[in-house]
């Protein structure tokens, strides 16, 4: 039993590292604000916003891992999912590339607070090892990808669960989390760089045009891929789903 726990813990660590490398090496990581590109005041502001989520998230994650140790491997798999997704730099209709975030699955299976920690570790490794995103912009990037995205995924999932098919609910949750991540980034950039003439709105529309349009087909892809994984989990009637309170597994 002890050895099994150790084994599961190792998988968790490996998955986290993989997840980090995954997002990190995805070059067009445009949802991440580059190192040094947020003025000091805004950089600090977003750290202050993110810190309460990190504190709560850390507590939740520790509780989940100790109270439901059987879900550790699933947590690792969730990490691997984000890891692969973030490696897929997919061409989009605008002629540029972008990648999915992979945070929706974890938010649905575990919860938004848990995902805030996983997502932030991803961003941290990425900033240190890969020069994507940045340490000074970590608070802002964590708020968009690891906090706002998962919160939306969780909210949409809770709202639609039981009211429509699970596939539709999972798709909507994951796709909207992806879109929201980029919309929040656009808001953050527009707040820091308001247009000299048109102010915040004009600036938001400029950043939003770059991010959101490119992101729509990718959000759809992310939604579909998340549905495929959840369906596969349900198809195997994985017991962890019940532990985590996800019902309706069809055999």
């Amino acid at each position: 039993m002890k050895r099994k726990n150790l084994f599961n813990a190792l998988w968790l660590v490996l998955a986290l590292v993989l997840m980090n490398l995954g997002v990190a090496y995805a070059k067009p990581a445009q949802m991440h604000i580059m190192e040094g590109f947020l003025p000091v005041g805004w950089a600090i502001f977003w750290f202050v916003v993110a810190i309460p989520f990190w504190v709560l998230g850390f507590r939740r994650l520790r509780r989940t891992v100790t109270e439901k140790p059987e879900t550790r491997l699933l947590l690792g798999m969730t990490g691997a999912f984000a890891f692969i997704l973030s490696a897929l730099k997919i061409p989009s209709v605008t002629g540029s590339s972008s990648h999915p975030t992979g945070t929706g699955l974890g938010a649905i299976l575990f919860g938004p607070l848990e995902m805030s920690i996983l997502g932030t570790i991803v961003l941290l490794f990425q900033a240190i090892l890969l020069a994507h995103g940045g340490l000074t912009t970590l608070g802002a990037n964590a708020f968009s990808m690891a906090i706002a995205g998962p919160l939306v995924a969780f909210g949409v999932w809770k709202l639609l669960k039981g009211r429509t098919s699970d596939s539709v609910a999972v798709f909507s949750a994951a796709a909207l989390a992806n879109l929201v991540t980029y919309v929040v980034t656009s808001v953050q950039l527009a707040l820091a760089y308001p247009d000299p003439v048109g102010g915040f709105i004009a600036s938001f529309l400029k950043f939003g045009a770059i991010f959101a349009v490119t992101q729509v087909p990718l959000a759809i892809s992310e939604g579909i891929l998340t549905v495929l994984v959840v369906n596969a989990l349900k198809g195997l009637n994985v017991p962890e789903l019940k532990t985590l309170g996800i019902q309706g597994a069809k055999s």
Binding site: K27, G95, S96
Partner: peptide, 17 residues
């Protein structure tokens, strides 16, 4: 198109603003 990353474009907008 070469399907480059959109992050470079965002950097361009920052430098324009």
């Amino acid at each position: 198109s070469e399907f480059g990353g959109a992050d470079g474009e965002a950097e361009g907008v920052i430098l324009a603003v």
